[in-house]
Design a protein around this nucleic acid. Structure first.
Lengths: 195, 195, 195, 195
DNA sequence: TATGAATGAGGATTCATTCAT
DNA sequence: TATGAATGAATCCTCATTCAT
């Protein structure tokens, strides 16, 4: 299945993402996807094994993009942990703002037996590790206080997600970003006196 | 089509909840639900208009139960805001622990056109108002610092949710609860000096 | 299945007749019939073996009523053939006017395997014989000319039926009756000269 | 959903006609139709919106064929009214002989809410107009006597139908045709003396 | 006898998938 | 490689029928 036309694959993926984001899986027809992508229905099967495969590809694709983007932003140049955390949160907010449903889709994965678990888990771990290392770094450097950075790393995406859920457009993004950052930084703040 | 037997309705709801929690909507067959509930397939249609109606009822039902439980716990006797917050978080964790998928389902609702929006929004608002009032109370009493309790009220569920997502069983609940509480309380802690 | 309440059976029959006359068999629900008849759904099964049985009973019942009515009208007192014919045609028109669909239903019978053919055929023959005898009588008495009264006996119902089909209400009944009578009498008129 | 293959549509129509003619609507399964037509069940839905649509198409199709056939026969070359009438009756008999159920089906139409009334009414009117004009023509030319050709035009189909109903095969067609023609012509005969 | 809640066989319909072109 | 007409497996839903009351 050597793709002759990687661009076409991406077109399909993009068209499908839009549709899967708007309605539940079973309400998205492959004929809709084909039309939206400007290809024939049969063509979908050249690039994807099945509807399920297409769906999972859409979700994985989006998630991987988020992680990669995050990593490259943070790696770009070494920073202070506080700076890195800010960047990560901003990046997160930006991404979810742009792809309001992708993060959602990830959560429906269990039950899709055909998922390539190792691939997914690796990507998810990558994200957690990224956040965890920022916090751990901060703890080491004394600018954060956290007894379990691994757990905290799990909170952040959910927190951002919840903040943006549903009525995204009604919230001022700048204000939201500031508030989230302040919230997280306070939570990790080193307190005077003993804990 | 009058509900003669509310208990039977609840049986169906419970059976359906289990199944919908395990697999995506389109992989849950009504015959499975009927069997699991110990009723005939036709009976489902006495209590629910359609598969979609059943699904949405499952989700709403679970959510309403969470909110009601939360409220009754908190209202039970007036408390200190810190205490109320602890209670709410514990309650949340407990609930999601018991209904790992229900909170998830809520997020897939947009796109289910048939949803009775007003009903849903009211319940969601109820939850947010509950949390918000706890925090606002704390701010007034000087035990919390928060420039926007309304936003914070939105973070908490997502934060808990993310913490428990996926590998719930691998996390020690007591430890997790302590960590989340500490995290949230730190985030809302009143700092020495000015903000 | 000794009917305890013949009146109830007739109520059901009447309610069903109205419904079956308005829509095709498969669009008439037994729950509709039950409601219209003011009885429970289960009660229908006390009086009729099945939906099909009810349907066939409705049709047979109406048809038998027509034939009996016709016979009693004609037998009432012996008449001239012309007079009898007039009476029969008038009776026919009246009946179809009152039961616009019943005559129709009769025509859908083949294919309803469960029909009690002998019973039906007997009734149908009775009607034909009735008409045939009137005409034959007229031929014998020299007031009608017809080489095959048996065939003519078959035309008359269809002719009336067609006249009244569909837009019954738009036709003036008196005028229609006169025209039909004139048409039939002309057709049977004894001609001067040879045939 | 564009009809790519008109022939296939006609095959389906023909297969369905045969089945609908033999049993009532609800006893005809679409799987039977598909098999009889030599196509897959899904294919039926490419050419017809629903079972009901298929059914109505079958009926309309047959009726339209009758009317068209009649018209072309009569128009073929201008004739004497008597000749035209004979032709029409013969044509009618022939058609009903070949399609014993189609004419029947037409009468069950009210109650099929989905019918395209204008289309049907137009076709029905076409038939009536055809017959009416023949008779009117005859009246004008002095070979027929009829005070209301429009009504007479309605009788003829029903008369033929009734004659052929049920035990069609037991009747000698030639004899029947002669008798019907004689009946109708007598009914329209110009009488000596005044009307 | 009368009921109507419960049932599940039955069938219309959908839509992912195939394959001839 | 690209297509979309054709397919039929899969499944929701209906509704005649039953039966406990």
């Amino acid at each position: 299945m050597q793709m002759m036309d990687e661009q076409k694959r991406l077109n399909i993926l993009a068209a499908a993402a839009k549709l899967f984001a708007d309605r539940p899986f079973h309400k998205v027809l492959l004929s809709d996807v084909a039309e939206a992508a400007g290809v024939g229905k049969g063509t979908l099967y050249i690039y994807f094994k099945s509807k399920e495969d297409l769906y999972l590809s859409v979700v994985y694709d989006g998630f991987a993009r988020l992680v990669d983007r995050l990593r490259s932003q943070i790696d770009e140049d070494a920073r202070e942990p506080v700076e890195s955390l800010e960047l990560a949160v901003r990046e997160f907010i930006y991404f979810i703002y742009q792809n309001p449903h992708l993060y959602e889709l990830m959560h429906t994965l269990p039950g899709w037996k055909a998922v390539d678990r190792p691939k997914w888990d690796a990507k998810r771990m990558e994200l957690r590790a990224l956040l965890e290392s920022i916090i751990s770094q901060g703890v080491l450097q004394g600018c954060f206080a956290d007894s379990n950075p691994r757990l905290t790393a799990r909170y952040i995406p959910g927190l951002v997600r919840a903040a943006l859920f549903e009525d995204i457009k009604s919230v001022d993004r700048q204000m939201l970003t500031d508030h989230i950052l302040h919230f997280v930084k306070s939570a990790l703040a080193v307190k005077e006196g003993l804990d």
